[in-house]
Design a protein around this nucleic acid. Sequence first.
DNA 1: TTCCTTGCAAACGATTTGCATTGGA
DNA 2: TCCAATGCAAATCGTTTGCAAGGAA
Lengths: 141, 141
Amino acid sequence: MEKTVTEILLEKNLSITSPRKLIIEEIIKNSNPISIESLQKRLEGKVALSTLYRALNDLKSAEIIKEFTTTDSITMFELISLGEEHHHHLFCTSCGKIIDIDLSKKFEKNVDAEVVKIEKNFNYKITEHTLELLGLCSKCK
Amino acid sequence: MEKTVTEILLEKNLSITSPRKLIIEEIIKNSNPISIESLQKRLEGKVALSTLYRALNDLKSAEIIKEFTTTDSITMFELISLGEEHHHHLFCTSCGKIIDIDLSKKFEKNVDAEVVKIEKNFNYKITEHTLELLGLCSKCK
DNA sequence: TTCCTTGCAAACGATTTGCATTGGA
DNA sequence: TCCAATGCAAATCGTTTGCAAGGAA
């Protein structure tokens, strides 16, 4: 069975407060990365804006959620699932929707091989990579 | 020989002003993507902050430079070279340095093939992709 | 001369902080 | 009870805008 929001917080030693529970619930409900603006609207009246920002930072520090910025400067949050798989994002440039995608194992191997080449060429130590795909979603295209 | 900054501006029908020339010179000097903050420091006293923002927007509209945002929310600018090839970015997570890299032709073909799969799976029309590589540069590792 | 561009200061939107109050452990 | 988290309002940061003065064509 799914872990409850309360369990998630307990596990990371964060105290169980109403704003934190509401925020995690919204992020889970959304099932894809969500913007602050969007969260704010959905929690209107239930959570003060400053609390939203503070709680998001707490959840980020506790590694319950992850933050990133889109190419057009929108701050997004997504849940870090337990068995978090390495994944990528597919952006709709028209409506702003973002969904998580997995790439084939074979392709990821190709990426890893290419990364090793780059590391040698530039004398870098590469720890992470992300492939961003931009385009139009089924509704917008 | 290299094109002069004045020639670049003339070619795009922008009037030749001191701030515009200084900004382009700094970006060329840097030879890699540069942040606004960094530009600001280097042009300290020579260009007003509002002018910097306005000029950057003008240069962007004229397609002399290109803007993008890093995953950690820093706005960067880079020159669009004449024969601008599709390229990717290598980020140093310690000092913030970003350099441009090219990936092998073979690898780019693999990416294209994977993109076609994704388009089918999700019924998206993908128009652009970027591979971001994060790690430590030769100095920081 | 005629506009376009600049510099300054004020305005703005997103995020952060101070502080008194509330509520979880 | 006690300390951490909240809500509100004020502060701050990055960016944009209005307007009068300056400079390119």
